[in-house]
Design a protein around this nucleic acid. Sequence first.
RNA 1: GGGCGCGUAGCUCAGUGGUAGAGCACUGUGUUCACACCGCAGGGGUCGCAAGUUCAAUCCUUGCCGCGCCCACCA
Length: 826
Amino acid sequence: KVWEWKAESGGAITRQLRRLGASCDWANERFTMDEGFSKAVTRVFVELHKRGLAYRDKRLVNWDPRFQTAISDLEVETREVQGKFWTLKYPLADGSGAIQVATTRPETMLADMAVAVHPDDERYAGIVGKQVKLPITGRLIPIVADEHADPELGSGAVKITPGHDFNDFEVGKRAGFKPAEMLNMFDGTARVLQTSDGSIPEGLLGLSREAARKAVVELLEREGALVSVEDRVIATPYGDRSGVVIEPWLTDQWYVDAAKLVVPVLEATGSGAIKIVPETWKKTWFNWLENIQPWCVSRQLWWGHRIPAWYGPELDPSGKPILNADSMLDNRSPHRIFVGETWEEVCQSAQQSYGSEFKIIEGSSDDSYGTVRAVDALDEERDSKVYIPLWRDLDVLDTWFSSALWPFATLGWPEETDELKRHFPNDILISGFDILFFWDARMAMQGIEFMGTPPWKTLYLHGLVRDAHGQKMSKSKGNTVDPLGLIDKYGADALRFTMAAMESQGRDIKLDEKRVEGYRNFATKLWNAARFLQMNGVGASTSIAAPEAKLPVNRWIIGEVVETLAKLDKAFADLRFDDMADAIYHFTWGTFCDWYVELVKGELNAPQVGSETRAVAAWAFDQILVMLHPFMPFVTEELWGAMGTRPYELIVAKWPAPEAAVDAASKAMVEQAVGVIDAVRAMRSELNIPWTASLTPYLVTDLSDLKSTGEAIGAMELFRPQLRQMAKLNDVLEVHTPPPGSAQIVVNGATIAFPLGDAIDLDAERGRLSKALEAAEKDRDGLATRLGNAAFTERAKPEAVDKARADHAERALEAERLAAALARLG
RNA sequence: GGGCGCGUAGCUCAGUGGUAGAGCACUGUGUUCACACCGCAGGGGUCGCAAGUUCAAUCCUUGCCGCGCCCACCA
């Protein structure tokens, strides 16, 4: 049944991954309960035990009374709960007075074993060592001196319940109590159980924690032992899965000596052998590792890796086994522990331990059956040997114990497989920070312990997806987003791209559906661009390197690809997925679609330049597909195939290698043309010049700046068809003074006038120019002020001063041109 | 109590010691033969508050206000 559930749940997870387009090695799927993996788990446990790093210990654990199992510190979550604070009065046994103690859990007084005061607390100096007679139970308990008691708090005296409080456990040990002697007053479901001294009144037995509290408080009140009650907010431990209050409970459990395993992890992180990204997590990482507690790894569950430990009876002085099978498994009777990977191995070490006069047999996991068999065997004394039954531990290992082995156990360890050699260690682990301690830290610990090196070089911690209100998504809150729903609506590509674009290091992601929609539109845009290219005879590129190109537009777009690629490479090296997404998005839409495609529309099938342009367009588009593929694998792969016959699929295509450089001259020319088009469009829009009206541009020659004029005219000549198409401009004319009634634009130091005759709205044009002039003057003057400041020119970095000078010159020139244009208007 | 982080355009978020950016939303405009899931143009921010360091601070330092998370034994 559970395996069915596992198949279903695991299937759902892998289905989601597949639909997201995760490129996994599906043939090598692994589950931690697979046979091979289980073998690795057993091996690790046995090895840790051999090395003294896994051991059985009796101490307080976090006990979950609902699931009736121990859990680790990490599975406990502290919640602030409204509670009460009771002050109690315990009478001294010699009748010489009473001592007050305070508690938030009055019911635990039934298992009190001492009252502690601070050694330096003069108020109590005289009574340390005296006995107190505990109300209700009448138990006599000592007053002890211990640093734990804080004189500032309450009365300065504190009741000590070593069996039910982590602090008190430590105090109790210091006061000389052995864990085995510590009183326990709860059973596994947290109902009141008689303590070993039998002092709890009958009426209280079997009550739940809550009921016991009520009853105890009533009894205390009746005895006059209750001094006061006040309301108080109490930090209370809850099981993160069960949601019930966790009970500190005294049991025997298996522990892993995490403090030892952590030493090389700290070293590796310190030396940089493990790099943590973003770095801010380093502090958290160190802080946790440096304060790590023994890791409780045994769980009283029936699903998981069974602990490979067997218990056998201790021998009494006469050499007979002490068979108390019903108490053997929880180690309440004297026992010996055997740990081994197989029954044979365990048998062997047991034989060695007990001696050859004994015969080792396997005790049934059903206690009574094992007892009977063992006793029968004893009676018969067959082979004249005494039979020793060994019972295997019923507990299973914490799931994170096996998960921690993932980086190497999946690769066949402990066998020395080729996969292991090839894939261990990994370059990078990408993980949510919510499992930083649960999983990542333990992978690091076990990886170094068993493989000698950290399991990965970089640990990248990404943000968590939160809902629209910033709440963490959880099944219990019901605010989870099903990725499949979003995929159905917008496509996996859009979802993936959104995730990448939102993943700036470390910060959480509030998923905004509008954003997903926007990237769906982006995918559509790409699709349409491909369609257009195909319609114009552009197919698959035949080369990986950029094609030879003469035309400036083509040389320019090749340079743009080179620059975009550099941005992507840089962002990737920095693990900035948002920057990568941003760069490819803007190149594709803003540069390629909005400008390149528009600029070459007329050239694609032109007689002279057509083939070159088609080749460049095909190549550039291919580069987009390759660069975009990691983010949008589905559309890009589809288009890759649609553009032409390919020797291989996009998913295995090599990352772009243009073998080309940015051509500054082409770039300048294209930018000049683009500047003109932009300015004309803005002018048309602001002056309400209908799009259908073509305009004749008059380039105003400036004898003092023939360079700007020349460049402008060159670019405008070169892009004459594009200017006609994209800005509705007639052929350019050169003049020294523009005709009256002209609208004017200033682009890179060149002034272009458009005679509008009577059609011009002089006020609008004046307003337009004034506004631009004002902006230019403001910038110019601001820069002038700064440059006039001796402190700036002397102390600022030379680059900053140079830049200010250059900016100032540019803005000043622009202002001058605009002022002239304005003056011409009259 | 300790630690980490956040507060930047209406919203969701980037960002840099040299007078701020994106997407969406918004306004105007356009159905020109890739795309209205579109094109074109445009408006919008005293970068939480205060002080300090600096020639210069949104960016560094300190304090404060508001918010989130993690860790922790205050009975």
